[in-house]
Structure formats: C-alpha cells, structure tokens
Design a protein around this nucleic acid. Sequence first.
DNA 1: GATGAATGAGTATTCATTCAT
DNA 2: AATGAATGAATACTCATTCAT
Lengths: 183, 183, 183, 183
Amino acid sequence: MDRREQIRQGAVKVISERGFHEATTSIIAGAAGVSVGTIYNYFRSKEEILGYIFEVECQRRVNHLHSLLEDESDPPRERLRRFLTAHLDRVRSEPEIARLLLQEFRFSDRTEFLPMRRFASEMPRLLGRLLSQGAADGKDPTVRGLALFGAIQGLTTQMLLAPDTVETESGALVDELTDIFLP
Amino acid sequence: MDRREQIRQGAVKVISERGFHEATTSIIAGAAGVSVGTIYNYFRSKEEILGYIFEVECQRRVNHLHSLLEDESDPPRERLRRFLTAHLDRVRSEPEIARLLLQEFRFSDRTEFLPMRRFASEMPRLLGRLLSQGAADGKDPTVRGLALFGAIQGLTTQMLLAPDTVETESGALVDELTDIFLP
Amino acid sequence: MDRREQIRQGAVKVISERGFHEATTSIIAGAAGVSVGTIYNYFRSKEEILGYIFEVECQRRVNHLHSLLEDESDPPRERLRRFLTAHLDRVRSEPEIARLLLQEFRFSDRTEFLPMRRFASEMPRLLGRLLSQGAADGKDPTVRGLALFGAIQGLTTQMLLAPDTVETESGALVDELTDIFLP
Amino acid sequence: MDRREQIRQGAVKVISERGFHEATTSIIAGAAGVSVGTIYNYFRSKEEILGYIFEVECQRRVNHLHSLLEDESDPPRERLRRFLTAHLDRVRSEPEIARLLLQEFRFSDRTEFLPMRRFASEMPRLLGRLLSQGAADGKDPTVRGLALFGAIQGLTTQMLLAPDTVETESGALVDELTDIFLP
DNA sequence: GATGAATGAGTATTCATTCAT
DNA sequence: AATGAATGAATACTCATTCAT
C-alpha cells in the first residue's frame, strides 16, 4: 500500500472541499485512513502535501501537452481540440482536483510551491507553441499562450462555480474556444 | 475621517503583502492607524473586511464596464480596447490590489464572499455582451465572455508573477487581445 | 496588578513541584490565575519564564552577597556567617524556589538561560573574595570560592531531599561550614 | 554482544550532548546501532535507560570510595587525595558522563531515579566517614561529608562549564581541596 | 530476538474576538 | 467611539511506545 499516495488522495478530497487552511491534519488523516503521526512519516509538513498534489497533477497535464506537441501527425487545430477535450473531461470527472488547483494556487515562492509556479509558466509557453504552429504568422506566441491558458482557467472556474451557466456540452465548448484561438 | 475606508486601505496593504491568513487583525490595525478594537466597531469579522475590499474593487470594475456598454458612441472594438487599457493601467499602478483580488478569491459561498462571486459571474456576462456587439454572429456570447475574462486574468497573473516575461508594452498587449477576441 | 510577576509566581509553584518540562503552560496559567494566552502577552516563550525566574532570584542572592562585601564593618568570618544564615533561612522559607534553582539549572547557552550562567560564575567569585578577605594567605581564591559555592549547594540539596538527615539546626550548620572554610 | 550495555553507551553519548529530553529514542537507537524496537526489549522505558546509566556510573564511584575506606594501609589524607585525583581524571577523560550526571539529576522519587537518590545520600556519608577518620574530633561527619560532596560537584561543574577559569592543574586542585577539608 | 512503520496522546503557541475602561 | 489587555479555542507537529512481520 503506497502510503504517500493514500495520504495524497485523502488530502485532495478534504482540501478541495474545505480549502487548505480549514483542512486540518487530523481531518486529512481521517480521510486518508491513517493517523496524524503517519502523515509526518511521509511528508515533512502539511504544505508539502499540497506541493506534492500540485506536483502530481501539474506533471500529468504538462506531460499530456508535451506529447501532443511532439506528435505532429495531426494538424495543430486538431491537437488543440484533443487537449481541450481531455481537459474538460478531466474537470468533469475529477472536479475536486480542478477546484483545488484553481483555489490553492500560491504566489508564494516557498519551495513547496515551486511545482505550481513552474506549471503556471510552462503551460502557457507550451500552449503558445501549439497556437503558433497553427497560425504561422510569425508573431510572438507568448501573449496568445497566456490568453489561452487564462481562458481555459476562466471556463473551468465557471464550470465549477455555476455549472448551469455553462450548459453547453463539451464538444461545443471546445469548438468555440478553438475558433477563438485558431480561427 | 471615514474609519471603514481607513481600515480597508490598511487591510489592502497588509493582505496584498502577506496574504489574508498571515495578515493578523493587529497588523491590519497597525497599518490602518487604529486599534484592534476599532476594527470590530466597523466590521463584524476579519473576513468581512476582505468581502468589503472585493465589494469596492469589483464594483469599480463592473461600473466601468457598464459605462462603456451604455456609451454606444464608439464602436465595440474601440470600447474593448479602452477597457483593456484601463485594466492594465490599473494593474500597473495598483499591483497590490490586483494581486489581492487574484489570490484571495474564494469559492466559498459565505455571504462575505458574495461580492467575489457576483463579480466572477457579472464580468464575463458583460464582456460577452461587448463581444457580441462587435461580432453580431448571433452566437451565445457566454463562452466568449468567460474566455475573455479568463484570458485577462491569465495575463494579469503573469504580469504580477513574472513581469519580465510580458515585457510587451500595454498598447501591444491590448492590440493582441483585441485581435484575438474581435478579429 | 503586575501580570508578569503574577505569572512568575504561578510558574515557580508549578515548576518546583513538577519540573520544567512537566509544567505545561496551561497548568502554569491556572496556577497564576490567568489564561494561557495572557502568558504570551508577557513572555515570549515558556523558557523565557524560567529565565525570568532565575533572573529575579539570582539577582536577589548576588545583591545580598555584594552588600556584605561592601560593608566592611564586620570581620569576614561574621559576614560569611550572616550570608549562610540568610541563605539557609531562605531555603527553609521558600523551599520551592530553592528546589527549582537546583533542579532546573541549564548548561544550555540559550540567552534565556544566561542569568543562570552568570549566577553560577558570579557567586563563586564573590564567595572567593569573601574567603580571601578572611584568610589573607595570598592564594588564588577561585578554587575555594567554587568549593564553598558547591558545598552550599550540596547542603541545600540534602536539606530538600532528605531534611531528616540534616536535622542540625541552622546555627550549627552555619558554624560547621564557617569552620571548614574560614578555620 | 551485551545489548543493554550497547544501548547504555549510545544513550550516554546522545544524552550528554543534547540532554535527556532532546534525546529521542530513535536518535539513541541510531547511536547505539540498534533499532527503536530493540531498546524496548531491554528497557521498559526511556527513563529506565537514564536510571541504568546512573546505576552503573554511581556504583562505579561508590565502589571506588568503598575500597579506599576498607584499605586502611594509607593515611586518610592520602586516600582522600587518591579519590579526588581519580575523580578529576575521570571528569577530564569522560566529560560527557560527568556532564550527564550533573545535568540530569532528578529530585523525582520515581523508581527509575532511585539510583541517583541513593548515590546522593551514600557518597556524602562515605566521604564524611573518610573525613572523620582523618580528623578524629568526634564531631558528626554528616555536614562535612555533604559539604565536601557539594564542593566536588561545584568544581566539576565549573570545569565543564568554563574550563579556562579552572586552569589549575589537577594536582594543585586536589591539594587545595584536601587542605580545606583535612587541614 | 530484531525491526521500524504506525500510532495518537500531548503541548507550545497563535490570533480572532470581546469588553471593561 | 476608541482602546488594547484578556481570553481560550484551535492546530501543526513530536515522539515514546507498541506490535505485526
């Protein structure tokens, strides 16, 4: 039984529901099915748990985008659609993690939060590259990458906050976003 | 002297620097030039201060957008540019407030955080309306509004986190965003 | 009401009974008649309380010895007797403090424990000076000072540990000690 | 391999460096080259280890003094000198143990600390007997025994705390102490 | 016997909030 | 209204001890 993973899962559940600060170590321990002490056999601090959650989830997303960029068999437009679809699916299937990622982002430069920072700089860069493959107009892709990254966050936030206002089915959402950024 | 305003200003300074949770009431009181006790004569709780900050700042932004919508003398594209320019200027002149707004957003549905929620639903709606005035293609403007709102947030975040990666001058940024959303 | 003093007294009682480590802040607070929080309005930490206790008590003893040294109207032998008598009286009237001083002495060089260290170096020096006034044999008084200081501690310890084995009345004890060190 | 002894030695090292309370069982285990669990196969509790350390070290000292008392071939003065010399040598060669003995003495009457208590009552008694053999003045040797015992402790403490203030070589120290107590 | 992962009671410290002055 | 001392609930983290392997 992988304790570190077990604790991570308990923490995701609790933190996404109550926020990091209201998620006490003892509640996390309860949700993970271990005792408080055990948490500290696998993590140096409560914050390290949050850092680890980001590490795992961010890596997952960055990896996916990387693989789409390397695979050049499909046109960029198609690859963007695939990424957006996968993202929205993940939001719908694991809303707690999405909520946690959006909510618990920390500006802080503590090492525990480095993965968050790297994620926030890497994703826009990669998205920018994808866009510039699609619209080879020679422009600096930075701004468009950031805009797309932000747009995705904006839509995700809305889906989590007020799902009924974004009733559009995933497919249509993806179409619209794609049209905006790769018209 | 408007005590409530005085306290709000102290709180903005302190919270934007240290985050809401590390901003103790006594530090806020110090920054505001009042005593802890006085805070509680004007606010029911520490969270109410945060709520009030959002109320003021969000209202300011919503009002501006409203006025742009009502004034139909200029074409939508021009009005969008004006809004984006004003926004970026505000970020550059009051980065602490921008940081605070981005960082302290709460999903929670406590009444104290209602202004945040309303802001997060009102702004995309208004932005959507502006966009649909510009591209009267009959499509539901919801998604585009959310995307633009998110894009603005994404750029703002980056400007605060890593200003040197978004060296583009305000004008160019505005141009690019406008081109994306009202091509 | 002098809170710092009030807390010091509560702490002396509790620490002398249970030892520093078993004396929890909440028990100290209870004994002092204040709440835990109040302790931290007057002391930075639990250890600072111990430091303060030593500061007060050590100062008291050092001062007394100083005054005896300055007053040269009586012969050294008489002054030594007066010091010993005063010391034994204090042990009998405030055994908890004596116990605490003997028990909680810390080798540690944390600033909180500086008063203890200074006490442990100052007293032997002063006692040595007193002895050398009495037996002007030109010898270095260091060793005799330390020996006397230690002898006093030894007797005190025994009086606290097993009072019945040192049944000798104070006067006789003082006589014997004086005879040993100023024969 | 005598596990109990092995653990005792690890504990002496760790406790003398960090103090009993900061010496965690796991650090002791590490220093002893066994695992935490093993400690509890040989000791009922952490405190029992401390008790055992005192038992061994105190016994060693008491035995030595006993043997000096029984061997009446040398005059008492010479025997006192031999004891003091041996003691100071031991302090210089094993300062950690001396430090531990001085620092971790417990007034508590828990059985674990009985050896300390017995030591603190036995040694002065034996020292008193030695002194009374040397100065057969018929006086009760109790006080002088306690005084000598305390004096030895006082000098030892100083040697450990501030070795440079007691630069006198061992021989001279012994001479002075002997002169004081057996003039 | 040896191990070391799991346990959870125990504790110093913080800080929002109150209320007597 | 303004103050700030007093409050005590709340919480992260430690570590002696146990016990299944």
